[in-house]
């Protein structure tokens, strides 16, 4: 029965949505302390290449590779984050965009390691490893009535979903705490925040690095889900796409990033019947949205209204 419901195409789109949610959060977190970072694509690339190279060349387990990838991205985040503190607003945006471009060009040119613009193939795939692992424990997909490739896609989806839930839990908890209030106060008035005893350097580096970590994690997972990466996956277009997820959904609230990534990943699939024009529609959508609702689709006010409506409904 399960075998008939599970559509691998939908599972795959679901997985892409989850990876994109992670990326959107990687923009949201630095932004919550007032730092507009366009480095997500670059950090994603560092995570992806680190994990891919480690698992291909040193036969490391995928889990270790993914953790190493995310850590490599966050180390780069610290290295870049500290000097970047002197920059704000558009300066930081362009500098991080530039960082992403430099990283991409290095991937293209460091032939011996990265295979240049051709990219890396034969990256161990997460779903297959899980399948083998399960088989090692004496489990066969047929036992729950699904085919092997259905199991592969399903297991990837479940792993990603779990990770996204953990990340959301982490970010929301952090937000509703002393750390979150410090980040938000820096975002609203950094000078006043500093005179309230907040070490803005520390908190800015923390949030910038967390962003790099999430992007690196998403990149490493991306590599092991797709099995093939090239520098083009981490270009300017990716950086802009991720920024748009966050801003479109609403950059003031975390649910905005989730919604933005969900909606905008799904939209091109839904718009397949006009596939030729979908990017034109996408462009127009952005222009109209910013003119009508510059804070993004979701914001604190709208969420409040929805909550009130719901609680009223609940009383009845």
């Amino acid at each position: 029965m399960l075998g008939e419901i599970l559509n691998t195409y939908y599972l795959q789109i679901g997985s892409f949505i989850l990876i994109n949610i992670m990326l959107a959060i990687s923009v949201y977190v630095p932004l919550s302390s007032g730092q507009l970072s366009l480095g997500s694509a670059g950090f994603m690339g560092v995570g992806a290449y680190t994990s891919a190279l480690l698992t291909i060349h040193f036969d490391l387990p995928i889990v270790i590779g993914i953790i190493a990838g995310a850590l490599a991205a966050s180390i780069l985040g610290v290295i870049v984050g500290i000097p970047s503190l002197r920059l704000s607003g558009v300066y930081l945006a362009i500098a991080t965009l530039g960082l992403g471009e430099v990283i991409r060009v290095i991937f293209v040119n460091w032939d011996t390691l990265t295979k240049g613009s051709v990219g890396l193939t034969g990256i161990p795939q997460l779903g297959r490893e899980i399948l083998e692992f399960a088989r090692g424990l004496g489990f066969e997909p047929a036992m729950i009535g699904i085919k092997n490739n259905q199991f592969v896609f399903l297991s990837i989806f479940i792993v990603l979903l779990t990770l996204v839930i953990v990340i959301l839990w982490f970010v929301v908890r952090q937000q509703n705490s002393r750390v979150g209030r410090a980040l938000s106060s820096i975002n609203q008035d950094d000078k006043a925040a500093e005179s309230m005893g907040i070490n803005i350097t520390y908190y800015k580096v923390i949030s910038f690095t967390q962003g790099a970590f999430f992007a690196g994690l998403a990149g490493a997972l991306f590599a092991h889900v797709i099995g093939y990466i090239s520098p083009a996956d981490f270009s300017y277009h990716r950086a802009v796409e991720v920024l748009i997820f966050t801003v479109f959904g609403g950059s003031e609230v975390i649910i905005g990033s989730v919604f933005g990534a969900f909606f905008l990943t799904l939209m091109p699939e839904v718009l397949r019947f006009v596939s030729e024009f979908r990017y034109i529609i996408y462009g127009i959508l952005l222009i109209v949205l910013m003119a009508v609702r510059p804070q993004g689709i979701l914001d604190a006010n709208l969420l409040k209204k929805i909550k009130i409506k719901r609680s009223k409904g609940g009383v009845r």
């Binding site: 002393r178 209030r181 106060s185 006043a192 907040i198």
Partner: peptide
């Protein structure tokens, strides 16, 4: 006045208690 204008009154004071 330099309050954290988008935060609640209570949260403003709580930020003051950061140190």
């Amino acid at each position: 006045i330099r309050l954290f204008s988008q935060m609640s009154t209570l949260h403003n004071v709580m930020v003051g208690g950061h140190s």
